[in-house]
Amino acid sequence: MELSPLSPPRLVSNQQENIWQTLRRQLLTCQSFTWAVAFITTDMLPPFKLVMEDLQASGIRGTIITGTYLAFNQPRVFAELLKISNLTVRIADGPFHAKGYLFDHGDWQTAVIGSANFTRSALLANQEWCLKVDSQTDSTLPRQLAAALADLTGKSQPLTYTWLADYEKSWEPPAKPVLHVKQEKIVPNQMQAAALENLQALVKSGARRALVVSATGTGKTYLAALAVKDFAPRRFLYLVHR
């Protein structure tokens, strides 16, 4: 249940209700909104577009300020945002990494500010923390956020089809992080050594099946790798639980 406009500041997370539910409820009751959010994913746009259709029927408009930091936002994100007629999108310059949501309810404003980008994982599942503050009980944060958003709006540029065409030409997917593996010789522990000896004996006897039962943390994954190395098959299939 949404707290009244006179509710004190509170922490919003994905524990009891997710952050998207809080943002959606604010959208459906506001007169306008301005967001500054660095990262946006396409999987959050369908539910957002449904809400924006409802707001359009009531003449409600909004603004999103986003950017191109780390090339995270795909061109498709901007293309979909351009389709929303009652939404203004502006592009911030430089390493833009802000996450703030401001809703204007006429007599009061609500600020939601914290760690959550406009991505499905951030708004539905991740361990994210946001502070929700209504101006009728504490006007400091909403007022500061409004001033920061106004300044950011003046320093940003509008999203246009021309801008998007240029972005599509230069955009490349962000590089995946390289996993640096420490190179060291893996020596079987006591359980693994005993199991490997028994497995080798089974193979020599002509057995085609074996079952290893061992407690959690004793090293079954390494054991499997060591066993495959000893057996040296031309190919093998390794099945694991998800």
Results as ranks from 00 to 15, higher is better:
residue 1 M to N: 10
residue 5 P to V: 09
residue 8 P to Y: 10
residue 14 N to M: 09
residue 18 N to S: 09
residue 18 N to W: 07
residue 21 Q to P: 00
residue 22 T to V: 15
residue 23 L to R: 05
residue 25 R to F: 00
residue 25 R to L: 01
residue 29 T to K: 11
residue 29 T to E: 12
residue 32 S to F: 06
residue 33 F to N: 11
residue 40 I to G: 03
residue 42 T to S: 11
residue 43 D to C: 04
residue 43 D to R: 07
residue 44 M to S: 07
residue 46 P to I: 02
residue 47 P to Y: 01
residue 52 M to T: 01
residue 53 E to K: 14
residue 54 D to E: 15
residue 54 D to I: 08
residue 57 A to W: 02
residue 57 A to V: 06
residue 58 S to D: 12
residue 60 I to V: 15
residue 62 G to M: 07
residue 64 I to A: 09
residue 67 G to W: 06
residue 67 G to V: 08
residue 68 T to H: 04
residue 70 L to M: 08
residue 76 R to T: 12
residue 80 E to K: 14
residue 81 L to A: 05
residue 83 K to Q: 14
residue 85 S to W: 00
residue 90 R to V: 10
residue 90 R to D: 06
residue 90 R to E: 09
residue 90 R to P: 01
residue 92 A to K: 12
residue 93 D to I: 01
residue 93 D to T: 11
residue 94 G to C: 09
residue 94 G to L: 10
residue 95 P to A: 13
residue 96 F to M: 03
residue 96 F to Y: 12
residue 97 H to I: 06
residue 99 K to A: 01
residue 102 L to M: 05
residue 105 H to A: 04
residue 105 H to W: 01
residue 106 G to Q: 04
residue 107 D to I: 03
residue 108 W to I: 02
residue 108 W to V: 04
residue 108 W to T: 07
residue 109 Q to E: 14
residue 109 Q to M: 13
residue 110 T to H: 03
residue 111 A to Y: 02
residue 113 I to F: 03
residue 114 G to D: 01
residue 115 S to F: 02
residue 116 A to R: 04
residue 125 A to T: 13
residue 126 N to H: 05
residue 128 E to K: 03
residue 129 W to G: 05
residue 132 K to W: 06
residue 134 D to E: 15
residue 137 T to Y: 13
residue 139 S to V: 10
residue 141 L to Q: 04
residue 142 P to K: 08
residue 143 R to C: 12
residue 143 R to T: 15
residue 144 Q to H: 11
residue 148 A to Y: 12
residue 149 L to T: 06
residue 153 T to R: 12
residue 159 L to Y: 12
residue 163 W to Y: 08
residue 163 W to P: 07
residue 165 A to I: 03
residue 167 Y to I: 02
residue 168 E to M: 10
residue 170 S to G: 00
residue 171 W to G: 00
residue 179 L to C: 10
residue 183 Q to Y: 09
residue 184 E to N: 09
residue 186 I to G: 02
residue 187 V to M: 10
residue 189 N to D: 08
residue 193 A to H: 09
residue 195 A to R: 04
residue 200 Q to G: 15
residue 201 A to Y: 05
residue 204 K to Q: 14
residue 208 R to H: 11
residue 211 L to I: 14
residue 215 A to E: 04
residue 218 T to V: 10
residue 221 T to Y: 02
residue 226 L to Y: 08
residue 232 A to G: 01
residue 233 P to D: 08
residue 234 R to S: 13
residue 236 F to Y: 15
residue 241 H to Y: 04
